[in-house]
């Protein structure tokens, strides 16, 4: 068996060649631990690891690390998220040392949504590093035991390092190259933007395979159930970098039970992306609809999940 970088459940399953399921948990906009526990219980036996967003869309919520710590206590495996928007390299490294000390093993590195979209649009942003520099810093901390400044440390934070990529953003031709940069910088796994346009996603994956990246990094396709035609339209027109084909919007619009149709579409997309060469799992982002995840995973034939070692 290959040497483990982090010893996380997610890393082990991917290494064993299992098709993994991760899900997203959005922490609450209040100091309410019960909301986190409730959502975690829903995801407990249906996801191998659970992403906890870091003030997504720049809205203040319980911190990813704090919520992740609650999940560790409950016996779940969190993937904490870290954006470049709110912290400089000092704060990021400090928080990551803390996260590792609290038993967190998976980390997703992102640029972060601009604060303009959030609930504090008058705040100052940081972006001391970009996501690629963040990946490099975290990898050097783990593999070289070095801080960004070059100083050494005794006990390094050992994370299974993730990055995101959006195959639907522009310029399309550059997206696979940017993924290559993320892999070179230190990404062990990738979670993609939500896939609604499977054809375009396949095109991107073809380019990814041409670059040989499918052998260097585990790629998890992002999926998300649409709840209503309103949500579908909103996502198409107001969320930058999301591609929702008109045919899907029409399907949801015509459906008698849009939620049921949304779940059905999500399962179909999972079944299609599963067949794409180089896809190692799915990442289910059921935004404020965590209760739909068990049904989606079940209907996609992905249960039972392997027990956490």
């Amino acid at each position: 068996m290959k040497l483990m970088k982090s010893g996380s459940n997610l890393e082990r399953l991917l290494q064993e060649g299992k098709f993994v399921v991760t899900a997203e948990l959005g922490p609450p906009k209040s100091a309410d631990a019960d909301v986190i526990r409730k959502k975690a219980n829903i995801l407990k036996d249906v996801a191998d690891a659970v992403n906890i967003t870091d003030c997504q869309t720049a809205i203040v919520r319980v911190s990813s690390i704090a919520a992740g710590c609650i999940l560790v206590q409950m016996g779940l495996e969190p993937i904490i998220q870290m954006t470049c928007r709110d912290r400089n390299r000092i704060a990021i490294q400090s928080d990551l040392l803390g996260a590792a000390a609290l038993g967190i093993r998976n980390l997703l590195c992102l640029t972060g949504d601009h604060q303009k979209f959030g609930n504090h649009p008058s705040s100052k942003n940081v972006f001391d590093l970009d996501s690629i520099q963040l990946l490099k810093m975290v990898k050097d901390m783990r593999d070289e035991k070095k801080f960004q400044c070059g100083e050494e440390m005794d006990i390094e934070p050992r994370f299974f390092i993730g990055a995101v990529e959006n195959p639907f953003a522009d310029p399309f031709e550059y997206r696979a190259l940017r993924l290559a940069k993320k892999v070179a910088a230190g990404a062990d796994f990738i979670q993609t933007q939500i896939v609604y346009n499977v054809d375009k996603f396949s095109q991107w994956m073809e380019r990814v395979r041409q670059l040989g990246l499918d052998h260097k990094v585990y790629i998890l396709a992002g999926v998300s159930p649409l709840k209503s035609v309103g949500m579908a339209k909103y996502m198409k027109h107001h969320v930058p970098g999301l591609d929702v084909p008109d045919a899907l919007i029409e399907r949801i619009g015509k459906a008698e039970n849009p939620k049921e149709e949304g779940i059905k579409i999500c399962v179909e997309i999972i079944n299609r992306v599963r067949k794409i060469q180089g896809i190692s799992g799915v990442h289910i982002m059921a935004i404020e609809w965590e209760t739909s995840v068990p049904e989606i995973v079940e209907r996609a034939g992905l249960l039972p999940r392997p027990k956490i070692a």
Binding site: C84, R85, T111, G112, D113, H114, K116, N125, F127, D130, S131, I132, Q133, V164, E165, N166, A169, D170, P171, Y174, L177, R178, K181, Q193, P240, G241
Partner: peptide, 20 residues
């Protein structure tokens, strides 16, 4: 670039425009 990125466009770049 609204996020002063140094290694390429963020995931919000669409149709040549900035997400902001």
């Amino acid at each position: 670039c609204a996020k002063n990125l140094l290694n390429g466009p963020c995931g919000g770049s669409q149709d040549g425009k900035c997400e902001v």
